[in-house]
Simulated scan of single mutants.
Amino acid sequence: MFRGDRARKRRLELGLKLPEVAELTGKAKSTIAGYEKEETPGKYFRTPLAKDLSKLADALQTTSDYLIDRTDNPYNPHINLLQYIKYEKDFTIGGKTMSENDMNFLIRTLENIANLPSKSENQTDEIKSNK
């Protein structure tokens, strides 16, 4: 079931206003507001169609699964793998649950990779040093 409260929470976490989400999704501001408005507990004024749910998830940098309550992890691994992994408590690779030490090692490794200069930065430094 669609969770408009999660859409609102993500929108606010990202610092987005209704008109910005409307523009990103191609929907009217009132439609986005309707997705977030609860008529009765757990029932929202509007529920997005599947194609619109995907656009809404993209705009909110999350997944459709999060918005329909199939996961509690709000992070989209295609956008921010590191945040996604940090959020997960039990992470499996090849059917085996990783130990806490292995998870910490994986997180440190990804943080180190994220802090490496990009290839284009290295090329710029090389060009400057050759002058």
Rank of each mutant, 00 (worst) to 15 (best):
M1C: 08
F2C: 04
R6I: 12
A7Y: 03
E13T: 10
E13Y: 07
G15C: 10
L16V: 10
K17H: 13
K17F: 12
L18P: 00
P19D: 05
E20T: 06
V21I: 10
A22D: 06
A22S: 08
A28I: 01
A28S: 06
A28L: 11
K29G: 01
S30T: 14
S30G: 12
T31I: 12
I32E: 04
G34F: 12
E36P: 05
E36N: 12
E36S: 10
E39G: 03
G42M: 10
G42E: 09
Y44F: 15
T47F: 10
K51M: 09
L53Y: 09
L53P: 00
S54L: 14
A57E: 02
A59Q: 05
T62K: 08
S64W: 03
Y66T: 05
L67P: 00
D69Y: 13
T71W: 12
D72L: 13
N76V: 09
N80Y: 06
Q83K: 15
I85T: 02
E88V: 03
K89S: 11
K89R: 15
I93Q: 09
G94T: 00
G95C: 06
K96N: 04
T97R: 15
S99D: 01
E100Q: 12
E100N: 07
N101R: 11
N101L: 06
N101G: 00
D102Y: 06
M103W: 02
N104W: 00
L106D: 00
L106G: 00
I107V: 14
I107L: 01
I107M: 01
T109M: 09
I113V: 06
I113L: 10
I113G: 00
A114F: 03
P117E: 01
K119A: 10
T124C: 03
T124V: 08
D125W: 07
S129L: 03
